[in-house]
Design a protein around this nucleic acid. Structure first.
Lengths: 71, 71
DNA sequence: ATAAAATTACTGCTATAGCGGTAATAATAA
DNA sequence: TTATTATTACCGCTATAGCAGTAATTTTAT
């Protein structure tokens, strides 16, 4: 969990969606190289690009902290 | 919650930790400008830089999808 | 009030992420 | 097997995130 790798999750979801890296890249509006990088757990990718990929794959992001957060 | 802004969460946690933007930047090993950008919800920041800030503030990130994922 | 600290904003410069193109493997299908 | 598709890998080039420095503005003290 601490070092759970996002890359394999993305790859798994992409496969399940029946998409190639290129197709996912086009849907997310980014380059194929970046999709490849994300699946390789490259962390220097842009947050916006990662978000775009996650949205296409219907993966939600949640931020949690020990502090009570009444937003 | 769909478009909850991460920036204010970061800012709130930073304040609670009694840190200035500069101090947080130093602790995270990034520039003060980037901390400012993150709090302004700039999404083109690097994932690695965002992660560094979240770690300092003890904010965890979780990825969720409708597909059963046994992490 | 004035002073000090913090935040916001802007400016060049540098480093590098992102990109398409290409090529080489690897996996899948015929 | 061979052919097709997908993935991985590498290459220059370009765009821009990140940076320190600075200054203006805002906030928080005294």
């Amino acid at each position: 969990m601490s070092d759970f790798n996002l890359g394999s999750m993305v790859k798994d979801h992409r496969k399940r969606a029946g998409l190639t890296q290129l197709e996912l890249a086009n849907l997310a509006g980014i380059g194929k190289t970046t999709v490849f990088d994300i699946e390789k757990d490259k962390e220097t990718v842009r947050w916006s690009n990662l978000l775009a990929v996650l949205q296409v794959l219907n993966i939600a992001v949640e931020f949690k902290s020990p502090l009570a957060e009444n937003v």
